[in-house]
Design a protein around this nucleic acid. Structure first.
Lengths: 344, 344
DNA sequence: CTGTTAGCGCCTTCAA
DNA sequence: TTGAAGGCGCTAACAG
């Protein structure tokens, strides 16, 4: 392929080509309140097309004072929970002609801080943080300061599933969802439970485990603290936690993993341990990840409208600022499936 | 929360605060070839810290003439195939201090064109297109033109799994992988096959189906064209195709779905049809999606190193341009699992 | 309705 | 080593 012109045309070039002024070309091409006489407009458009002109977004942003990129921070884009939310954010962003810059923080809070700082440098118009943080108050403080700086620079901020910071938040009702799940499982006849509780300090994991315990308590069932095992918030974490439980030889009828990915790991561990589901052990998860809807037995879980959450977050960040912080509550819905059949 | 200063400090402010010139502040803060006397440097740094200064990346980019954002185009970020690749791109980008802007094209080639144009406007330093395109030569031509324009503006381009355009490409050996899979399945004793072939015009799907047929042919087995059923490249597409096959009442021993997601859909259809796997029907897929490794029976597939592919693409786009276009070949590896047991 | 011009914030040549 | 000044491409007053 021969190297071509390698010349980038500017608005100036377009204006010259159309024999009009810079300002007219600008008005004709990039929406302005002012209007341009039709014939001139056509000339500008033709000139731009001829030159294959593409406005320099950097320069536009600098002159206008704001950009149209929004930053999205997730813990791990390869995790279906986050990729589904990301898809939803991107699809909503599209409607507003916003560009989405994504970064994976890999659950390192320092990286989170770095990225927010970088996005401030980019003068991103907004940043959305998906995924809860830990209960470490030092980290929360730092993040709060960084987000405040971002807002001072004119940016908007929205959080998904974290409610300890005074900014717009999409609150996922983890606790209530887990509570209802517990109630329904008890109604199905289950009595002895174990919980694969995820990371000790992760708010989402804690809320789900706590909600589940509450639900059991209300139904008059107590959860033995020894049957609450922590672990990574991943498939392998679920596998490991379930294996630990198994090797300890617990006598429970149903295991609740605080997310679907862990639940699938737990199911693998059960299978590897020679147990059959749901006969020997019932399993429940949380999230209702689409990719995991075909596991067998079908997984009982709490469905979260992941496809909406991102859109709601983007809305928060797009709408005129009312009095803030605003909260949007997202409910979960218990979906009973074959992994937790009715006991008789 | 009381509204704060809402004032963004500029390099000018930093310079004043440090009692030095703008140029000195610039040199001290943002790496320049020139050096600054240590005490002045310290003063600048202190001033910047005091003001919580954050350089305006837009302005830097304009002055410097290039940005550090790379665009990534995927068909659907919620699809685990793409989200895994995206994770890999992002992780590699991180090492180069590049920011990644992601967009979902939803398999609409016009959106693909729009996004490349937008990224040109953003003066992105590179764009990576993940996911093959169709064999529509009109679309290919348009995309080629758009990418050429992008390159003319100084940007770099890399494609993942598409080889009909004269740009740097990460070539996934779909055909060879499927061929080997066919060979091994025949070696296991299977004779009658069906193929869930995906979209008719999608290159990746076509290559995999063709490779599979080749492999069978070499092993002396012919594939009845009637047993090649097209469909969407999704879970539901696999379900629908398998259902169609079932209702037509075909007599095959093994079904090859051209990707794992479709294979899982097919498994669901089989289950809903009352068939047991692998006894009544063996199933094989392609990709080895991590999230799907726990389906039962475990899915035989062709493993692709998705975690590397993105990194390779980023490397292509980062490295000094040698003579181009360059090609990087990515091999698949057949992984036999419980869904295709040895026949006797 | 159109053109002129002054910035937007930063980097970098050039002169000191 | 430091400072002054021009320019990156565009928008938005302002003047005509």
């Amino acid at each position: 392929m021969p190297s071509r012109a390698r010349r980038v045309f500017t608005l100036q070039d377009v204006a010259q080509g159309a024999d009009v002024s810079l300002a007219t070309a600008s008005r004709a091409l990039n929406g302005s309140t002012r209007r341009v006489r039709e014939d001139l407009r056509q000339r500008v458009l033709a000139s731009a097309a001829r030159l294959n002109y593409s406005a320099n977004a950097q320069a536009q942003a600098m002159a206008r004072g704001h950009t149209n990129v929004v930053g999205l921070l997730v813990h791990d884009i390869a995790d279906p929970y986050f990729s589904t939310i990301a898809a939803s954010v991107m699809s909503a962003a599209d409607k507003h002609h916003l560009l989405v810059t994504i970064a994976s923080t890999r659950r390192r809070s320092e990286r989170e801080l770095e990225y927010v700082a970088t996005l401030r440098g980019q003068r991103a118009c907004a940043v959305i943080l998906a995924g809860s943080r830990t209960d470490d108050s030092t980290q929360i403080g730092r993040l709060g300061a960084e987000l405040a700086a971002f807002e001072d620079a004119g940016g908007r901020v929205a959080l998904i599933s974290q409610n300890r910071l005074p900014v717009d938040t999409v609150m996922v009702e983890n606790r209530a969802g887990a509570r209802t799940l517990a109630t329904e499982l008890v109604a199905l006849g289950y009595r002895r439970f174990a919980v694969l509780a995820g990371p000790r300090r992760l708010l989402t994991a804690k809320d789900r485990a706590a909600g589940f315990r509450e639900g059991l308590a209300r139904a008059g069932t107590v959860l033995d603290p020894a049957d609450i095992v922590p672990g990574e918030f991943t498939r392998d974490g679920g596998y490991a936690a379930m294996s630990a439980l198994l090797s300890r030889g617990v006598d429970v009828a149903c295991v609740f993993a605080v997310n679907d990915v862990m639940a699938v790991g737990a199911m693998a561990a059960l299978r590897d341990g020679g147990l059959e589901m749901p006969r020997d052990m019932a399993v429940a998860g949380f999230d209702d990840i689409a990719t995991l809807r075909d596991v067998t037995p079908a997984l009982t879980t709490v469905r979260l409208p992941l496809g909406e959450i991102g859109a709601v977050a983007l809305e928060l960040v797009t709408l005129a600022q009312a009095e803030r912080p605003r909260r949007r509550r997202i409910k979960g819905e218990v979906v009973l499936r074959a992994s937790t059949p009715r006991l008789r």
